[in-house]
Design a protein around this nucleic acid. Sequence first.
DNA 1: TTAAATTATGTAAGTGCTTACATAAATGGG
DNA 2: CCCATTTATGTAAGCACTTACATAATTTAA
Lengths: 148, 148
Amino acid sequence: MRRLSDRLDRDLSGLYADYGVRFEPRWYPIVALLEETGPRAITEMASELGLTHPAVSQVAKSLIEEGLCKKRADKKDGRRHLLSLTPKGKKRIEQLRPLWRAVFQATENLLTDELPGLMAELDALDQSLNEKSMSARVKALLPHEVDA
Amino acid sequence: MRRLSDRLDRDLSGLYADYGVRFEPRWYPIVALLEETGPRAITEMASELGLTHPAVSQVAKSLIEEGLCKKRADKKDGRRHLLSLTPKGKKRIEQLRPLWRAVFQATENLLTDELPGLMAELDALDQSLNEKSMSARVKALLPHEVDA
DNA sequence: TTAAATTATGTAAGTGCTTACATAAATGGG
DNA sequence: CCCATTTATGTAAGCACTTACATAATTTAA
């Protein structure tokens, strides 16, 4: 699974350069989330994207340096910083829209035509691990020499 | 997929410490391969495991420092270094055998009971990408503004 | 009201890989 | 035989995350 996901990432990572628009692949999840839902706090994004907050903080810093995002304090909570898209960020998104559409379409085609059950299986794996972690499963099979 | 594989890795990475045996998770693929097939060269292992040769070289160095492996020149090719298990390495493997068995069993149970189609879908994904890369699929859907 | 506990974010350092670069041995063709 | 090309491995640096640590704001409980 890791090899496959690495493979897909590597395969797609050159597309932005080919497309002639400056954009880092790791920016995508955050930019897409901000476009969809508006200004968000670092930990909110981290939680939703399944990353740690320092990872999001680092990407946020990178996006701010590129001018695609800006940060402001949350009036309701002095600890929080809300990240949002700049006009430049929104314009970059519009430039990339056709590329992202093509990626979605290609993914959709692949899943529909060739891998009809993949998403269901991955969701089921997620659920199964929610119910019982892999390590718990392993430990249940071991002689009682390992702490629970 | 990446989140899931990360999740599984993180979940299992504490098992060695819990089990009370000193072993790094990234050693496993190489140690297992050496046990199964005997002494191997760096690039052979890299190719079979889907890693780059520097990655394997780094793990090899780590294993040698731990005393689990040793390296010798290949008599047939003066460039090649064959990595093999030391007696200490073989002993470490025997210590870990019950844990690895439990991991295999847990995996088997999960695949058989809850995710019967997962491996087939992942194999199919691999095949599909062999036939046509994801970026090629995307580019086929784009207006003709991107180099083929 | 105050202090302890919790939560938000930044920074530093580590991890496990990758790509880039370098050197040397082997191979193949003229 | 000689040389250009290919192949094997090591080292350096980069990448995208993680964990650890630190500071500060907010919340909760006494």
